[in-house]
Simulated assay, not measured.
Amino acid sequence: MEDVEQAARRTLARQYGEFTVPNLDALRRGGRVSAVQYAVGNLLGVRPVIAFDDGQLRPVRRARAEQAAQDILAQLRQLMQASGLNIRAGRTQSIGAVIGAHTGPGMYAFVAEPYGE
């Protein structure tokens, strides 16, 4: 069992992911954004782009609601081009009920992991 846990920890350490949500309702209900952040975010149409950092969820930047998912893709594309990554595979996948309960419907995310290390 320790081998599985160590392998999972190594994989998580190499991965990078971000996600955003189409609205702040579920984040507000779950206490992940304050009432002020909720009101201002909705008023200005701004959504957080969130990443895992050392096992914690942390906002890494903000994006306009209508461009949040495109912002993630554009930054990922820029990072990939700058790094010279060779993309091996990609896929879409539905999220589970636990994550969906915290983010609400319509969450958009990506996760990348170096290949061949």
Rank of each mutant, 00 (worst) to 15 (best):
D53L: 10
R10V: 05
R28N: 00
L43G: 06
A68K: 05
A112F: 02
A7G: 11
L43D: 08
G104E: 05
A68N: 04
D71A: 15
L73P: 04
R58S: 07
E66T: 13
Q15M: 15
E113T: 14
Q78G: 12
Q70M: 10
R91T: 13
E5T: 14
E66M: 08
S94K: 09
G41D: 10
Q56D: 11
T103A: 08
A109Q: 00
V46D: 01
A68H: 09
D25E: 14
M80T: 13
Q37F: 02
V21K: 02
L76D: 07
A35D: 09
L85N: 00
R58I: 13
M1D: 12
M1F: 04
I99N: 03
V40G: 02
E113M: 11
I95N: 00
R88F: 01
A112N: 03
R77V: 04
Q78H: 10
G116V: 05
G116Y: 02
L79F: 08
Y108Q: 07
A7L: 12
Q6R: 11
Q75G: 12
A82G: 15
D54V: 03
M1T: 09
P114L: 00
R64C: 00
A101P: 00
L76F: 14
M107W: 02
A112K: 03
A97H: 05
L85K: 01
G106Q: 03
A112S: 08
F19S: 01
R10I: 12
Q93W: 13
G84A: 02
P105S: 12
L43A: 11
R9T: 09
G90V: 11
E2S: 13
E2H: 14
T103V: 07
S34V: 11
R14F: 07
D71C: 13
F52G: 08
I72E: 07
V60G: 04
I72D: 11
A97F: 03
T20D: 06
I87L: 15
Q6M: 11
